[in-house]
Write a protein that binds this DNA or RNA. Structure first.
Lengths: 192, 192
DNA sequence: CCGTGGACACGAAAGCGATTCGTGTCTAAC
DNA sequence: GTTAGACACGAATCGCTTTCGTGTCCACGG
């Protein structure tokens, strides 16, 4: 049981607001345009406090990436678990992913690594892990629903879905509904 | 019957050598580092001759893209038609594509649009068409082999294969053989 | 005749100091 | 424990000059 003192709670509050504000400024002006001064002023603390909390600008970025990653994976898992049928579950997961990425440039960079000249310098070490993380969570979902599947098949199907989804983010040619149906169909048929 | 005069043949020879030399210099030094002067000296003609033949630096790039595209598509089609079984044909097509792209940076740019800051400024108008062209040729192959397929299904299967292949070019996680098997499997199962 | 080499204007890029800006650290004060 | 202020240091920016490459023209020569 965590002994959360008052100091702990204010600390978390600062982290929350700082990351939120940093995300806004980051997508607005890029990595280079992000100044710690602005983040501090934006939430009403001193610049020094941010250094106490995140150690450096890179540290803040790392915390930001960590948070967005977890949010995305949680949303993905919720979409998958929200439906009984595997096909419909996957349709929902793809659709929400497309939707989320469409309105969040930061997530797009984290997932695809596209147009990152100015956004997040740590994409090289974070873009690939996020994709494999998404694949692994989706594979786990598959094995939860279809316990008879072997791990390799589930992982392969999940990876196909992840790669196709990202591909359609990078190069959209069809409506999201059509894409979601195609990917979900490919997955269920791949599973025999 | 084309009346190919001597002038026509020397003209084609100049085009061939110029495009070949330009491709080398392009992948070596990028678009900005490519000087028409060097191309001309490299094949022993004057700079003016290149302008007579390609009109501009952009014109040379366009001709280069056109040629590489056709070479790639011809190789793809040859790989597909080289096998009787659809699964094995697709394994070969994916494998040769991965192989070709691995050793040709220019093709990689044309197919993926990755790392094109300096290579080919016309990727915006050429990268997407090449992908759809590959999809359409692969779909045509499918309908040749399985005449009972409707156009939409064949096109969808071909697009899935194209997108997956490109995805594995951009972010390779497995050995080419494994990838080729997975993609070919996905295609044949997608076709019921 | 068609290719060549030289000449040219024009805009883009490179080189180069002087200067501003932001990070990261420290300290005195509340 | 947070804050405002000061600081060094490296990176980015500015204004300027100079170089470079494109695209075009023309007189010459095999």
């Amino acid at each position: 049981m965590p002994a959360r003192t008052f100091a702990d709670r204010t600390r978390d509050l600062v982290r929350d607001e700082a990351l939120e504000r940093a995300a806004e400024l980051l997508v607005a002006g890029g990595w280079r345009g992000l100044r710690l001064q602005d983040v501090a002023e934006g939430i009403g603390v001193s610049r020094q406090t941010l250094y106490n909390e995140f150690a450096s600008k890179q540290g803040l970025a790392a915390a930001l990436v960590l948070r967005r990653t977890e949010e995305f994976l949680a949303g993905l898992e919720a979409a998958l678990d929200g439906e009984d049928d595997v096909y419909r579950a996957w349709v929902e997961a793809v659709r929400t992913t497309l939707d989320t990425v469409a309105r969040d440039p930061l997530l797009r960079v984290l997932l695809t690594g596209q147009g990152a000249e100015d956004l997040l310098p740590l994409l090289t070490s974070e873009a690939e892990p996020l994709i494999t993380a998404a694949r692994d969570r989706a594979a786990a979902f598959l094995q939860r629903r279809r316990p008879e599947l072997d791990a390799a098949t589930a992982s392969a199907a999940a990876e196909i879905a992840a790669r196709l989804t990202i591909s359609h983010v990078v190069l959209p040619l069809h409506a999201p509904d059509v894409v979601a149906d195609q990917i979900a169909t490919a997955v269920v048929r791949f599973l025999m």
